[in-house]
Amino acid sequence: MNGVRILDALSRVPQELTIHIIMVVVSLAIAIAVSIPLGVFLTRPRFKKFGVVAMNILNIFQAFPGMAIIALTMPILGLGLKPAIGALVVQALLPIARNTIAGLYGVDSSIKEAAQGMGMSEGRILKEVEVPLALPVILAGIRTSAVYVVSVGTLAAYIGGGGLGNLIITGLNMLWVEFLIVGAGFGALLAIAFDRGLSYVEFRLTPPGFSTK
């Protein structure tokens, strides 16, 4: 251990952490904006056929390793922060879209019928019945995505995305233990913070009668 190096590593933390958080938040926001409407669209009765197909495709891609996504992004989008965000969006899309579809499919059809019987329009059923009931499942998808994205975000440094991965790469290249521990430690803390924070949101937004777990 070398005191000067620890200070050096720590002094780089604010900047790298900011980039990392920006990377994660931006890619999550884009992924949410794309995949929730997509999930809603695919679960409408008219497009039910596509929904099943899409679900199967998403299930296959679920197995796609994060590092492969990062590696495949480079030849297509090049190097830098934007390509890194692009790769992270792809990574984040799948769990959210998958959980949106699963959550909306999971809403009891008798509840939807009851809403119809009350004279609700399709749009209102979606807004006031389906989405609120599917919300816990959708949020669980967002949480999974957030943890993935923080994790894969460290790899994004290899395609010039910056972030905490930079510290780890420096540490690995120079075999500087201090950089490794500082980079890895803040990476882990960030992932755990996202996980716990979002699980609290999930807990608060779950309707009381709905939490069977």
Binding site: T154, L164, G165, L180, A184, A191
Partner: peptide
């Protein structure tokens, strides 16, 4: 288990290297 699962893989590898 949940906490370990959250740790980015590159970070966990990096810690073990030390």
């Amino acid at each position: 288990a949940n906490t370990i699962f959250c740790i980015p893989s590159l970070a966990l590898f990096a810690v073990f290297v030390t």
